[in-house]
Design a protein around this nucleic acid. Structure first.
Lengths: 132, 132
DNA sequence: ATTAAATGCTATAAGGAGGTATCATTTATG
DNA sequence: CATAAATGATACCTCCTTATAGCATTTAAT
């Protein structure tokens, strides 16, 4: 019922970076700060770089940096880029077609709170995560 | 962000059975009604049987039946028996320890709606799923 | 120039979830 | 009694996620 570990890592990385904005951070540094397995962290940073959330610079003194305006990056965007948001739009029981012809009582009970979470994720930007 | 497919199958099976209470149903019959892969369905039925949600009878005319009072079986009980409820009590980012010393903004944003879902799951019994 | 420190890329492994297949056992029915 | 129809149990396979490892390339500092 949670996000994938990779999504959690991604949100953690970006949350850390937004709270240390303007700094160029290396994978090694993030590893020491966040405890995410080094090689896996590298892969995630590459993915975040390719999906445009951060930019990388190579060579000594290289690293990663937030560039886009953090007020325009929403949590839902990040989750969407990493594990996708399909889970919010499809049957919570995992079916292509509801075996109860869409009369399924479990849908009635859970669809609203689930939509509520998605709404929050779409409204909350990285800027909102800055610790004041 | 959804339940496991196995949990979905389990809820589907029990929801079907509660709407056909008193009937003894076979795995083959449920397979034809719900479209869950036969052999996998068998495994799940065994698990639901071992965890006490249903009872099985063997031999020809054998099958499965609900026995407990369906008003005392809560959705959360079922989810707990199949995939566990740890997901609701642990860090939504998947960490043992919050890398932000429990000041993590994402927790602040998602903890309440997540707790709300758990509350609903704990309050809703199989009886509430009966289609009238 | 050489070296150190960084990312880019790619191959591989471990583990769990979902799914398949088979044999053994039980029981009702002709 | 023999057979059919059902569950019990178990082994296996595939795919995806998570994790590990190593080589290639780039760049700053000495």
């Amino acid at each position: 019922m949670n996000f994938s570990k990779t999504t959690g890592y991604s949100l953690t990385i970006l949350t850390y970076m937004v709270n240390h904005s303007g700094e160029n951070v290396s994978a090694d540094f993030l590893h020491s700060k966040l405890g995410i397995p080094y090689q896996y962290l590298r892969q995630i940073l590459t993915k975040l770089s390719k999906t445009g959330f951060i930019v990388s610079s190579r060579g000594r003194k290289g690293g990663f940096e937030l560039t886009r305006d953090v007020s325009t990056i929403y949590i839902a965007d990040i989750i969407g880029a990493i594990e996708g948001l399909e889970g919010f739009n499809t049957c919570i029981l995992g079916f292509q077609e509801c075996p109860f012809n869409n009369k399924c009582s479990i849908h009635n009970i859970l669809d609203e709170p689930r939509a509520n979470i998605l709404k929050i994720l779409k409204q909350t930007s990285l800027e909102d995560l800055i610790i004041k």
